[in-house]
Design a protein around this nucleic acid. Sequence first.
RNA 1: GCCCAUGUAGCUCAGUCGGUAGAGCACGUCCUUGGUAAGGACGAGGUCACCGGUUCGAUUCCGGUCGUGGGCUCCA
Length: 642
Amino acid sequence: MPVITLPDGSQRTFDHPVTVDEVAGDIGPGLRKAALAGRINGKLVDMSHLIAQDVTLAIVTDKDPAGLEVIRHSTAHLLAQAVKQLFPEAQVTIGPVIEGGFFYDFAFHRPFTPEDLAAIEARMAELAKADEKVTRRLMPRDEAVRFFKDQGEVYKAEIIASIPDTDEISLYGQGDWVDLCRGPHVPSTGKLKAFKLTKLAGAYWRGDSRNEMLQRIYGTAWPDKKQLDEYLHRLEEAEKRDHRRIGKELDLFHLQEEAPGAVFWHPKGWIIFQALIGYMRERQGAAGYEEVSAPELMDAALWAQSGHLEKFGENMYLTKTPDERTYALKPMNCPGHVQIFKHGLRSYRELPVRLAEFGKVHRYEPSGALHGLMRVRAFTQDDGHCFITEEQITEECGAITRLILDIYKDFGFEDVRIKFADRPPKRVGSDEVWDKAEAALMAASRAAGIEFTLNKGEGAFYGPKLEFVLRDAIGRDWQCGTLQVDFTMPERLGAHYIDDHSAKRTPVMLHRAMFGSLERFFAILLEHHAGKLPAWLSPVQAVVLSITDRQDEYVRRVTESLKNQGFRVEHDLRNEKVGFKIREHTLKRVPYLLVAGDKEVAANLLAVRTRSGKDLGTMDPETFAERLRIELKSRGRQVLEG
RNA sequence: GCCCAUGUAGCUCAGUCGGUAGAGCACGUCCUUGGUAAGGACGAGGUCACCGGUUCGAUUCCGGUCGUGGGCUCCA
């Protein structure tokens, strides 16, 4: 006698057990048709799920995020079914839903080709059109293992064998194909109407690089064709704002074969880079940091003492010199800063000592990890180290966290996620010291009132850390800022201060970076703004354009004057039509285009146009300068273009 | 590091079933003096990533190396 309570609070009573599908049909034929799954007491189930008890039930359609997940998961199954039909020797493994779509990993004796992909997709379309019923059944674990082993599906058998005894094993079938799955799934394959296979890739079995390489097929799926097309369009748009592409278009930097993972900064890119440094110099100077510079090349012995050589050695560049010494190119700035701290006797009265450096570090990253400016082998950190007493940890961590979040706001990043990364397997320092460091950072985070998620085992080898994560235009997450508590390094490198009882004490060291890598932050900024950097960061803030050569003298004079006032301004006197010049500088994302024709020259004016095509009318050069000055000073919060 | 793809002019890309290559844009010269996203003509530009092999002959076929791209692993 199940009584079923619906989301709107209404109840339906049945005199026999009913399926979700029947309930949906009872509510209305339209809903029954649109239904993909049910949610019983908060748990997702199939349409065929039989309800015998009193429950609350919601019918899940494609309007529900969970419905979209069901569609994607079922499309992954459809993919596997198609692959098994076309390539019976291929073995299936796993096929989860991911952001934007799904993938399925297969073991196969040869790589899939783009032609295979097209054939698979075509077969999937046929199978969807056949509208095969999707059925669920339970099977005892041992029987399921045997069932898949008999079919040569050793990966599936391995997965089932690793499922705890207590969990039930459910199998889903559609047509001639059966797969292990927790479910739920769409009631029939006809519900899958809009999908596309997007790419092929390799992936390790169970994500372990010691395991064999499987072949992963990525795809995306949506409730309808329109949403699929919109998604594909979004991908295209994201590609247009790829920092590598914009870097080329705007002539900001380049990379070349001879220096994999190292950047050749062009004049315009370097202006932006320096603007970032200038900004950070100002902010951290105000926060009590003193800027220093430590050697890039130091004797390997120092890196052995710090523990870097042992824990980080495979990522370090080493060089042997004619004097038979081995030097290491610094992969981190901390040991250098400790040397500066420990030079001379330090008193507790001096603490906190805050040292900062725009330090260029080199790390030999695996070749496959390199990615534009996002992942390089030579990069610049806005690195800083605070030498403090244990009592100062909470306050100092709070100050750093507030500073980081405030700085991100200046660049338009409001949504920042914070992760707490605790002790990694490869580490230095005793467990007691780690307990203390983790507790201290945790307490400081709580005191600062920030929310964070746990990133297990991802701390630095010398201490736990907070990671500040930004999301880029294509939806990828990038760790930028970091804050680490370190009870180990000062000890290993022999740093001390004298406390108020004239005793030698070891300071606690905080490592922090806000941009993290300037190269990466630069790339994220470019993508975030699609190249349209705010004027205070733009390499060229305005271009003065002549219409004919009669304005040359005036244009030169105005440009010179603006330059003398500290603005980054160029002129364009080329023998081209004004439309051509406008187009070109707009494509170069120059914030302001200042046009001078005969009329403007006669009245000492400039016709001001923005890169987004807005006409701001005419104004005299002094007025423009004043307004631009305000915009730059407010870092874009007060914008000339309105 | 691993899997797959890929490397032709400054850029974006054609092309050569093996006989040393072409377009558009950019660049140079000239014509045009034109009012808010491409005016026109002519010209110059490439050891077809690098090293080997097969071949009378390789940019093209094969092998390797390096780089790049998409993933995996790793990470700021």
